[in-house]
Write a protein that binds this DNA or RNA. Structure first.
Length: 878
DNA sequence: CAATTCACG
DNA sequence: ACGTACGTGAATTGG
């Protein structure tokens, strides 16, 4: 019994280096006012926080390498020779990391002639002798793995600043089949490029592991060396014997370093607040500073405001900002808890929503106002029967257009465009269960501060919008769209609960039956919804082959594509697929949608206008942009979506192939343009060109299918691997398709090269309407990260321009419906589709109108085509 | 709170 | 050599 002590040992040199590179692509963002780079310091802090939280140590030490020469260089002059010079931007940060550790109450230590590894090894040994310690070692360097034992866990940094791979003796055995001691022998055989440890010629991880699994140790390998068959490997082993044993010595961590400190010296002291605050200020770490100030003195700015009890005419002037506050994010169900407005001459705040209905206030709101989140404001005020017709500025949308990298809260706006440190809503209102309306003075002051941030940030944001040529995007696209979306959300869509209830009952019975069948086939009961349990049943109990299996981080994958390849091996697989499909419909849609129906028998989704990286909308609470359609069983759900009015229908109008048309336009590829101008079936046309087929009627369904996949791939930023995966063909065959495609559509190839080059030069890409996507990773040295950024550079202008075009169409349609005094109204948007509610009497003319407006939203070098369908339910409007 | 799966364009 | 298709949201498990 008794509390075990917990010791955290950190390889400071290696963790700092990792932190430096984890945030390397943002290095220009991490500069304090004095010009010092701070990315490694910041990253180190994040890693340390992460581990402190996870381990909750009683004792901590950060060990650093002392200098260039160590006892190892005495034995082997070339040890760690030939290393790339440490960048100056990194070296300059090291002293500050030590300063930070002091302020954080964490000890650090270095020792002449020894490396950080040896300090850690020695302390680990000391702790082991005392027995009541649990030890966690953190490093970016796998060498430390040799120290793992029953009391010692080794965390090796894997990715970013908070992802680690946890090594225990059991894990090491499972992963590599090695004991911690054998891990040293592996390195002796393999060598280590970064430390310039030679190892044995031509022996890498694979051969090293094979030898160790067979003989157990380096010594044993050499004892048996005479019995080896003659081979190049044997020869290398013999020639490099001395080198191998030297490597082993070099790789072995010294656990007997002559430390001048002991465990009693490294107890965790806790943060030194004063010191830490001045350190954060010096480094310009606003975030850490903000978090800390929560527990110390609130660190913010002050603002004078008037708490309003009675309205007076002189409280209102032209060009004021108005801000309306709610506690949680669903503005359809939340009520205003306070509001504030003002300009440079004064800020006013109140919690009395009755004031809003005062004729004086109402008349002010009828004229264009500046605000933050016009759509939300409009919906909230509509609940008070106040109509907010227009806005002349929306800070939230402005921020979204300037950069999609961060969120668009006022706190973020404050940080990016002003020097006012505004607390986040989570800090002021609390989060999770603790969230609540604060005392009035705190609330009003926070609201007044928000208004003052909105005031201070408007000009900086306008200037940047202007510099980016994005003013029209804000004033002619996003702001008018916010108005249209508000009306759609307020209108909502009628959903028939009884239809869903009937489906729920039928499905319930079917699920019961399937569950029983699956249990019978499995020979036991288990949770079919648990991929983990399902994996055990399929791959262990039933012994299905792992050949088709993908692995996930946590175990076997049981995703559809895997299961489909296994379907012929056991009848249980098909049952599981069927169960999955119905269970998905049942929980997400049939039950989920019923819960989202409000008292007016309608569903009011919220469109997020400032979330996606491309300019698309998204839909939440519930998501009405992913209602099933591809499979008939799911598609039936659409029968529950109906018009509100009698003698009306739902009209759905969707763009045909809008992304490929956009691609044809921005690439200027003559063949793709010609195909669209001819009105050809685009996938058939692609099949003909790529597979060299003369007549359309000779294109088989399979040809067309393959061509379709290629077309999709092109839009996504194609790769042979991705296409191969999608089509279930070899990578080579996929590469062949792609090469032929680029040969036959040189304009497309040209576009891809051009847009990636532009992204590299400018750091961002743009849509036809100047919507930007920043691509900070485009010059990353990491192949994966860079490739992703390149595909994104290709895809974003296509997906984004298509999104822009539908937005324009919606705005134009809204205007036309109003101008024509139509009763018809838009209800839903699904990326390339608009759903309207239309009285029968208006159907013919509105259908024509919608088609016309969608097809003329923008003039491209290819025609735009929209197709309409109407019916009594969304299901029939297909 | 992360991971997995699956619904949509 | 590297190991991936682009963009979303919701339900469910299980630590």
């Amino acid at each position: 019994m008794g509390n075990k002590k917990k010791l955290l040992l950190i390889d400071g040199s290696s963790v700092a280096y990792r932190a430096f590179f984890a945030l390397y692509n943002q290095i220009e963002r991490f500069k304090n006012p004095a010009g010092l780079h701070t990315n490694a310091i910041y990253g180190f802090h994040l890693m340390l926080d992460h581990m402190m939280k996870r381990v909750e140590p009683t004792h901590v030490l950060v060990a650093f390498d002392a200098g260039k020469t160590t006892f190892r260089t005495e034995m082997f002059a070339d040890y760690k020779a030939g290393r790339a010079k440490t960048p100056e931007e990194f070296r300059e940060q090291l002293p500050y990391i030590r300063e930070m550790l002091t302020a954080l109450g964490v000890s650090y230590y270095d020792l002449e002639n020894y490396e950080a590894d040896d300090i850690i090894g020695t302390l680990d040994k000391l702790a082991e002798n005392e027995e009541e310690y649990d030890v966690t070692i953190v490093s970016g360097d796998k060498d430390l793995i040799q120290l793992t034992d029953s009391n010692t866990t080794v965390e090796i940094s894997k990715k970013g600043v908070a992802e680690f791979e946890e090594f225990t003796p059991a894990y090491l055995m499972e992963k590599m089949g090695l004991t911690p001691k054998q891990f040293i022998d592996l390195k002796a055989l393999m060598g280590d490029k970064s430390d310039n440890i030679p190892g044995v010629t031509k022996i890498g991880e694979k051969t090293g592991l094979k030898l160790l699994h067979e003989y157990g140790s380096l010594e044993a390998i050499y004892e048996h060396i005479d019995s080896f068959k003659t081979s190049k490997m044997k020869e290398n082993l013999i020639n490099d014997k001395e080198q191998a044993f030297l490597s082993k010595t070099l790789a072995t961590i010294n656990t007997q370093a002559p430390l001048t400190i002991g465990l009693e010296d490294i107890a965790y002291a806790g943060v030194q607040k004063e010191q830490l605050i001045s350190f954060y200020d010096e480094m310009d770490f606003k975030q850490f500073r903000g978090q800390l100030s929560q527990s110390v003195s609130p660190q913010t700015f002050e603002v004078t405001y008037t708490e309003v009890k009675d309205l007076k005419a002189d409280m209102f002037r032209e060009d004021q900002f108005f801000y309306f506050e709610i506690l949680n994010d669903n503005y359809h169900t939340e009520e205003i808890i306070g509001f504030a407005w003002g300009d440079d001459h004064g800020i006013y705040a109140s919690t009395d929503t009755q004031l809003l209905s005062d004729p004086l206030f109402k008349s002010v709101l009828e004229k264009p106002i500046k605000t933050y989140d016009f759509k939300r404001s409009k919906v909230l005020l509509s609940h008070l029967d106040i109509d907010l017709p227009t806005a002349s500025f929306d800070s939230r949308l402005a921020k979204y257009l300037l950069s999609t990298v961060e969120n668009n809260t006022i706190s973020t706006i404050a940080r990016l465009y002003t020097d006012l440190p505004l607390e986040t809503d989570d800090e002021v209102y609390g989060k999770g269960a603790k969230r609540a309306v604060p005392p009035k003075d705190i609330l009003l002051s926070h609201l007044a501060k928000k208004v003052s941030v909105l005031l201070a940030s408007e000009q900086p944001m306008r200037q940047k919008l202007s510099a980016n040529d994005q003013l029209k995007l804000l004033f002619d696209m996003e702001l008018p769209l916010a108005h249209v979306l508000a009306k759609m959300e307020i209108a909502g869509i009628s959903v028939r609960k009884e239809t869903l209830q009937d489906m729920e009952q039928a499905n319930e019975i079917e699920l019961q039956a399937l569950t029983q069948e699956i249990y019978d086939l499995a020979g036991e009961e288990f949770n079919i919804n648990s991929p983990k349990q399902l994996g055990v049943i399929l791959f262990e109990k039933l012994g299905l082959p792992l050949s088709a299996t993908k692995k996930t981080k946590t175990g076997y994958s049981t995703a559809v594509d895997v299961l489909e390849r296994l379907a012929h091996r056991s009848p249980i697989v098909a049952k599981i697929l069927e169960y999955r499909q119905i269970a998905k419909l049942q929980s997400t849609y049939i039950i989920g949608l019923q819960e989202a129906i409000s008292f007016d028998d309608k569903i009011h989704t919220r469109y997020l206008q400032d979330l996606t990286q491309t300019g698309r909308l998204s839909s939440i609470d519930p998501n009405l942009q992913n209602i099933p359609v591809r499979l008939e069983q799911g598609r039936l759900i659409r029968k529950a979506f109906v018009p509100e009015w009698k003698d009306s229908v739902l009209l759905s109008s969707d763009y045909s192939q809008i992304e490929l048309r956009v691609l044809a336009h921005i690439s200027g590829d003559e063949h793709l343009i010609a195909a669209f101008k001819e009105g050809a079936d685009i996938h058939t046309s692609t099949a003909m060109r790529v597979f060299g087929i003369e007549r359309p009627e000779d294109v088989t369904p399979n040809d067309r299918r393959n061509a379709k996949a290629v077309n999709f791939g092109v839009v996504y930023g194609i790769s042979d691997f991705g296409l191969a995966n999608n089509l279930g063909i070899s990578r080579k065959a996929a590469k062949n398709y792609i090469d032929t495609y680029f040969e036959r559509y040189p304009g497309i190839k040209n576009y891809m090269d051009r847009v990636v080059r532009e992204a590299r030069d400018k750091g961002y890409v743009e849509t036809l309407f100047h919507r930007r996507r920043e691509l900070p990773d485009i010059n990353s040295r990491n192949f994966n990260i860079r490739s992703f950024a390149e595909r994104t550079a290709i895809n974003s202008p296509i997906q984004g321009s298509a999104a822009d075009i539908l937005k324009v169409a919606m705005i134009n349609l809204d205007k036309a419906l109003s101008a024509g005094n139509y009763q018809s109204r838009m209800l839903l948007q699904v990326h390339d589709e608009i759903v309207l509610e239309v009285p029968n009497a208006e159907l013919a003319s509105v259908q024509k109108l919608v088609k016309e407006i969608m097809e003329t939203a923008i003039e491209l070098s290819v025609p735009l085509v929209a197709d309409e369908n109407a019916g009594k339910t969304w299901y029939e409007a297909k």
